[in-house]
Amino acid sequence: MHAALDIRVPSDVQQIEAIVAQVVRRCREHRFDGRQLSLNVPVALTEALSNAILRGNGDAAGKCVRVRAEVTEMRLVLEVEDEGAGFDLEACTEDPTTPENLEREDGRGLFLMRSLMDRVERFRGDGNVVRLTLNRR
């Protein structure tokens, strides 16, 4: 992917807000919709980053997360890569909105990514990659 943003950051949840701010700024420059700037992009990217840091990298100090973002007039494509073994995206179908799951503290991350992005994919690159695509409205 030819990326306008390509950074490698320490695997630390305290890095998330700064990365999100960089991506949102690029989307704003491409005149993305206000709701996409304030909700879809920040929440979905935060979920992808926290998954990568806490699950993919096991919250281990010393590991890194790579973030690539390609922003055009048409769409945003984000790739978040961790050093983990990956997971089966298709197998993660649990619905956090059912009555039996509603009071669970966890289990909403992937649901939010799927709800707020047009496409969520996972594949192997150098590491485990989650790709999020959002079409500009």
Binding site: V43, E105, D106
Partner: peptide, 12 residues
Amino acid sequence: GYIDSSGLGVLV
């Protein structure tokens, strides 16, 4: 500002 799934989980 925005809230992620962890923030929602804490509220729950």
